[in-house]
Design a protein around this nucleic acid. Structure first.
Lengths: 165, 165
DNA sequence: GGATATAAGTCAATATGACTGACGTAAAGA
DNA sequence: TCTTTACGTCAGTCATATTGACTTATATCC
């Protein structure tokens, strides 16, 4: 952690600020995933199952290739996880009607239960953090997180500061 | 109630905000780790090596047990990674003077080089996001991230909203 | 001084999640 | 018809993590 000789810095971005940003991500993500990981371990599943269940719940009737695009893993990696989830009745496949090559994935009731259980701890964590931070801080959080991720992904997060509901 | 558009489940709006928060974390972390992972793969190392090199660089002369506390993995898991890093001359061990049971870990020059290379991509990513978002958004980001992580970790991030520079 | 606790290392077995490469099948589309 | 796409599968490998049992050296408590 060195090298701060990049000339005048308009935002006073120091090495220390950047390092802190990196660590915020590390610790927040580590603690964010710890609870569901522990729950999953009890039923013999792993984090990969959570991700699949989460995104299938989020986008019912998602195709396998769209899911691969989100997870950015290979189909062989997804295959084992997905077939376990289907075999244990958390996820169902349905042949697409418009395109019969597609396998549209959805959660069963059992899958929805699991998803809710797993995500509840995370939702509560986010809710607590949002509540404590306030609306303006949440908007800043959103802006920075969008800036951190690849530009290509930002379209997934429409809307802005708009107060709704 | 007919579906007007494709997309996520029509959920209660508060629920949607929380989901979005979860996904911001998922995508930002995924993209944040992708670049160093690719570099590491080229030299036969993995993300675990990066984490060790990062935190040893951050806290020179850190003890093994303190490092284990940060990474929250078992000593057996750390063992392989650490002995590879020591064997390849990225990290050195020194017996503690105050407590001779301890092995104090530090980076070699080669280790510092590696750490810098790996983290540069991440630093650039954070810097870009911070610069684009502005100081107020960064403060909000900080506040929310601290709220997401376990309370026990927050002491590692002193300073708060203090204006510097 | 002796008992106990702590810091670290090691051996063995195992699970999980990821990868590459090769190949197959069904269906869509040019 | 030919090619491409969507999906699946077999086989092998790697990286990261786990639990459990055990050892060595050193520190600390009584």
């Amino acid at each position: 952690m060195t090298d701060v000789k990049i000339g005048p810095n308009p935002l006073f971005l120091r090495e220390e600020d950047l390092r802190q940003g990196m660590e915020l991500l590390f610790y927040a993500y580590r603690d964010f995933t710890a609870e569901p990981d522990a729950m999953l371990a009890k039923i013999g599943l792993g984090r990969a199952h959570h991700r699949v269940v989460y995104f299938v719940g989020r986008y019912p009737e998602i195709t396998v290739s769209d899911l691969l695009g989100i997870l950015q893993i290979t189909k062989q990696s997804l295959s084992r996880v997905l077939s376990e989830l289907i075999g244990q009745d958390y996820v169902v496949q349905r042949t697409g009607t418009r395109d019969r090559r597609q396998r549209l994935l959805s959660l069963t009731d059992k899958g929805m239960d699991l998803e809710r259980q797993l995500s509840d701890a995370q939702r509560a964590r986010i809710a607590r953090a949002y509540r404590a931070a306030g609306a303006q801080a949440v908007e800043g959080f959103r802006t920075v997180m969008l800036g951190i991720m690849d530009e290509a992904e930002r379209g997934k997060f429409p809307g802005g500061a708009g107060k709704r509901g």
